[in-house]
């Protein structure tokens, strides 16, 4: 898979993606790095997120989003990597690198891409808490009901 990876995304990898996206014509490289946060949900604290996807749909959709952004903002390069599987607090879940001639286009394209990914690309996260429970994040938290005590048994997603 080109955009989705089950392998950890290191900071060295982020640097590599920056170098790969930029060249002599670029005046601006904007890098967005999403990192897993230790959110609190009542008495529970998030210790990791587990991502799953519909790969046959997500990969071409991300590709199209990148192509559309390139054309719309005349970008020089776009690199996108999104994690699948278990990502612990402090680790990288997503990287978007946008290279353009000027910073306005690079910032606008970066913001657009993360918004589209969060709204349209079929990727789901399940929060894993320090008390062993877990819960899908699919829309508003209050619609999901209370914590599923059996959630820890579903950790193989």
């Amino acid at each position: 898979m080109r955009y989705l990876t089950t392998a950890p995304i290191s900071w060295e990898r982020v640097t590599y993606l920056n170098r790969w996206a930029s060249h002599d014509g670029c005046g601006a490289v904007v890098t967005f790095v999403g990192v897993v946060r230790a959110d609190q949900d009542g008495r529970r604290v998030v210790r990791a997120l587990c991502y799953e996807t519909y790969p046959e749909m997500a990969e071409p959709l991300i590709h199209r989003l990148a192509d559309d952004a390139k054309a719309r903002w005349s970008l020089d390069g776009v690199q996108i990597q999104h994690r699948l599987g278990l990502v612990e607090v402090g680790h990288i879940s997503v990287v978007i690198v946008v290279a353009a001639q000027h910073r306005a286009e690079a910032h606008a394209a970066s913001e657009h891409l993360i918004e589209r990914i969060k709204q349209d690309v079929p990727i789901w996260k399940r929060e894993q808490y320090d008390d062993g429970t877990s819960q899908w994040m699919t829309g508003a938290r209050e619609l999901l009901g209370v914590a599923d005590p059996a959630g820890a048994d579903h950790a193989d997603v």
Binding site: G34, Y51, T53, Y54, E56, M57, P60, H82, S93, V94, I114, I117, K118, Q119, D120, V121, P122, I123, W124, K125, W136, M137, T138, G139
Partner: peptide, 29 residues
């Protein structure tokens, strides 16, 4: 609803062999 890996309205006519996806609200990022 997705039909053959693309979002479609629920009113979309289906064809034999289609692959449907039930896509709950996504939460990537």
């Amino acid at each position: 609803l997705s039909v053959n890996q693309a979002y479609q309205p629920w009113e979309t006519p289906l064809r034999d062999g289609d692959e449907l996806g039930l896509i709950p609200p996504v939460s990537g990022g």
